[in-house]
Every structure is written in C-alpha cells, then in structure tokens.
Simulated scan of single mutants.
Amino acid sequence: GRFDSVSVCFSKGLGAPVGSALCGPRELIERARRWRKMVGGGLRQAGLLAAAASHALDHHVNRLADDHALAQRLAQGLAAIEGLTVRSAQTNIVFVDVANGRGPDLLAHLERQGVLATGLIGLRFVTHLGVDAAGIERALAAVRGFFGQAPSGQAPRPSGTAVY
C-alpha cells in the first residue's frame, strides 16, 4: 500500500464532540499508545465519547457530501469577491488568500459578524455539521461587506445605512 497508517477524526464534519482513531500495523499502534501515555493522553471512562463517535459513524458519514457541496458554494462565492483568491476547496475546507495583508482585519470583521475562520494572510474556512446553506450565504455577505461589495446585480448600500 501507499500508507503505513490512517488517522480518522470523529469530530468536525462527523459531529462527535471529540475523538479520533489511528489505524495501522500492530507495532505502530503499540508505539502510539506508549507515546500517548507519556504525554498525558490517557482517558478514563471514555465509553461515552466512544458512543458519540460510534453514533457519528452510523449517522453522519453520508452527510459529509453536504459539507463538501456547501464548501464548493462558499468557494465559488468567495472567488467572485475582488481581493480574494481561492486556493483550494476539494473537501469541506476552503483555503483563501487575502490581498494587501488584510487577512487579520477580515478575520476580526467576520468574528464580529459571527463567522469564524482561521489564518492570517491565507484563511481557512471549514464547513461542518453546524453549517447550513443559510450560514454560507451569511458568511459570503459578511465577506462582501468587508470589501464593500454587494452581491451580483445589487448596488452597494451607502456606509452607515441600517437595513431593517
């Protein structure tokens, strides 16, 4: 095969509160267990978290395609905004470069609008179980607002104008 190991995260898109699994040859797993204990990664009574991961695997795998479709919608919308360059959107993660060093200011603006992303110059947006189509549109509206751009076919609103 091409890989010696695979790590699967049960949170994020699958919606479990925490957890991941490492799969690989017995020797690798034994070394990983030893390292986990050495760095304090032991967890007692983990059955509840294991049950959440099991539920996520039973009920949320098929809906990952929804996250990928929403990420594509986000990427298309962001690509249409002057000042942004979409680098990648192959799964539920969208990487975007922000022109003129405005990434930190955009992040702060988005956070005030209730939209979370990470990064500085290159930003990372992630769709997941808690993001729906309305959330994508809200995120795009917040980014357009930062750059003073209206959605296609609409004139920009004058600054300082409240919309009710």
Rank of each mutant, 00 (worst) to 15 (best):
P25N: 08
L110E: 10
S159W: 14
Q149G: 04
V61H: 10
V163T: 02
N62D: 05
G135W: 01
V115Y: 10
H128Q: 11
I136D: 00
S11Y: 11
A65S: 07
A155R: 03
G42T: 15
L140H: 08
R34W: 13
T161S: 13
A16Y: 01
L49E: 11
F147T: 11
A89I: 00
L106F: 09
G1Q: 08
G160H: 09
G41I: 02
L123C: 03
G19E: 07
G47W: 15
I29K: 12
V86L: 05
R31N: 06
R138L: 02
F125I: 00
R33T: 02
G114F: 07
R73H: 00
A32H: 15
G83I: 04
A75R: 01
L70D: 00
F147C: 12
E111S: 15
R73P: 00
P158E: 06
Q45L: 14
A89H: 10
F147W: 08
G119Q: 01
Q90T: 07
D105E: 12
Q90D: 12
F95T: 08
A16E: 03
G135D: 06
L48A: 15
P151S: 07
G40H: 12
G119V: 04
V131S: 00
L140D: 08
R33F: 01
F3Y: 12
Q113R: 09
K37P: 06
S11Q: 10
A32R: 15
V98E: 04
C9T: 15
G119S: 07
L120P: 13
R44D: 14
V39L: 09
R63F: 06
D97P: 03
Q76M: 00
L74M: 09
H109V: 10
R112I: 13
I93K: 06
F125Y: 09
C9M: 10
R33C: 02
I121C: 08
A71I: 02
T118G: 14
G41Y: 00
A56R: 05
A108P: 02
L28Q: 13
D67Y: 00
L57C: 12
A56W: 06
S152L: 14
P104Y: 08
D105I: 01
G19I: 13
S5I: 09
P158M: 04
A79S: 15
T85M: 09
V115M: 10
I93P: 03
F147D: 08
R44E: 11
G83K: 07
G119F: 04
S5C: 12
P17W: 07
S152C: 11
A51Y: 15
R138E: 00
Q113M: 15
L110A: 13
R73N: 01
E82L: 04
G42P: 07
L22Q: 13
A142Q: 02
Q45N: 14
R87V: 06
I136G: 01
A52Y: 09
A21D: 04
G114P: 05
R44G: 11
R31K: 06
D105L: 03
R112H: 10
G15T: 01
A80T: 07
K37R: 15
L28E: 11
F146Y: 08
E30R: 10
R144Q: 15
T127V: 01
G1T: 11
N100H: 15
F125P: 03
A134T: 05
G122Y: 03
F3D: 12
E82A: 07
H55N: 13
G114D: 04
G42L: 10
N62M: 03
V126R: 12
L106E: 12
V61M: 11
P158F: 03
D4E: 15
L64H: 02
Q76K: 02
T161R: 10
L74S: 05
C9I: 11
A142L: 04
S88G: 04
